[in-house]
Design a binder for these strands. Structure first.
Lengths: 163, 163
DNA sequence: GTTATTGCAAACCATTTGCAAGTGT
DNA sequence: ACACTTGCAAATGGTTTGCAATAAC
């Protein structure tokens, strides 16, 4: 039951604040990017974001450089975090208004599935303490084969054959 | 108390077996590399391995390409695994005759410290099961500041000043 | 001889950067 | 005027690859 003051800040507002502390501006380009980034909760990489942005109807397009630059800034601002690598690309996801979690990564199709486990977080805390290590965060990637890829391949017309 | 047959296989022997299954040969270059790789238990990246190899007194030098190619093969063979990234480089470590473990990674100095926690491994297994996910492995990187970097900077001549 | 392997140089590719032109105050 | 931004093109840097020469079987 905390006050709703902090809680209600949108990512865009948070970003504006962050930029202000650095004497930077919330330009139209940065606004477009943050809107697109927070328009859904999926993971993405820089390339995908460039594509999503180029599909928008906004009159203006945002250059690849600006996308890279802005993603780094969003990371610095604590709004995004890098969670994994895929196809030699950094994978980003929201790090604001979203609980800490980790990932199951399919080696076959590359899909990411989220999970959260409080016990693991707790153990990590303990381990850091035991090692006189000032904990700042962690990245846990669990590799294997996902449910989808475990399913035997669909045999087309199976049912028809049996008619 | 298993038989000692499997247990005593050296990395080199294991590599030779792996290569045989692929109709590949254990060449002098590959031999030099695997010797150097297993000559100690430290983490390393490709660049470091190239340097270590060039320092060897062996008459022959191994080219960078061959190092990259061989590291990949060692990984495929289950003798090495990529455990992290540092300075945009993949970090390798032994994955044979060495217990599974994870890492504390210092954001300041980049040092890696190993730790092992059976409870975390166990939890990961459970999580995979719950998600119908065929577990193959995991990578847990814990970020923060290491013991060394937490120490206040050494003030030179402090003791002398006090004399 | 045939097949695998090497080293070299070139290619690749995600990401970063220098810089001149542009924009907001 | 000034300070920050953008887009472009070029640079960067780790890693991969094509290929002709070489070595193992």
């Amino acid at each position: 039951m905390l006050g709703s003051v902090e809680v209600s800040a949108t990512p865009k507002e948070k970003f504006r604040e962050f930029l202000a502390t650095k004497k930077m501006r919330l330009t139209p380009e940065r606004e477009i990017i943050i809107e697109e980034v927070f328009s859904d909760h999926e993971h993405f990489d820089a390339e995908e974001m460039v594509n999503r942005l180029s599909r928008r109807k906004d009159s203006k397009r945002v250059s690849r450089s600006t996308v890279y630059r802005t993603l780094s800034q969003l990371e610095e601002a604590g709004l995004l975090r890098r969670v994994a690598r895929n196809n030699d690309r950094e994978i980003y996801e929201h790090d604001y208004g979203y609980p800490q979690h980790d990932h199951l990564i399919c080696k076959k199709c590359g899909s990411l599935e989220e999970f959260h486990n409080e016990q693991i977080s707790e153990l990590i805390k303990q381990i850091a303490e035991q090692n006189t290590f000032l904990l700042e965060g962690h990245r846990l990637e669990v590799y294997g084969i996902c449910r989808q890829c475990l399913k035997p391949p669909v045999r087309r017309h199976r049912r028809l054959d049996m008619v």
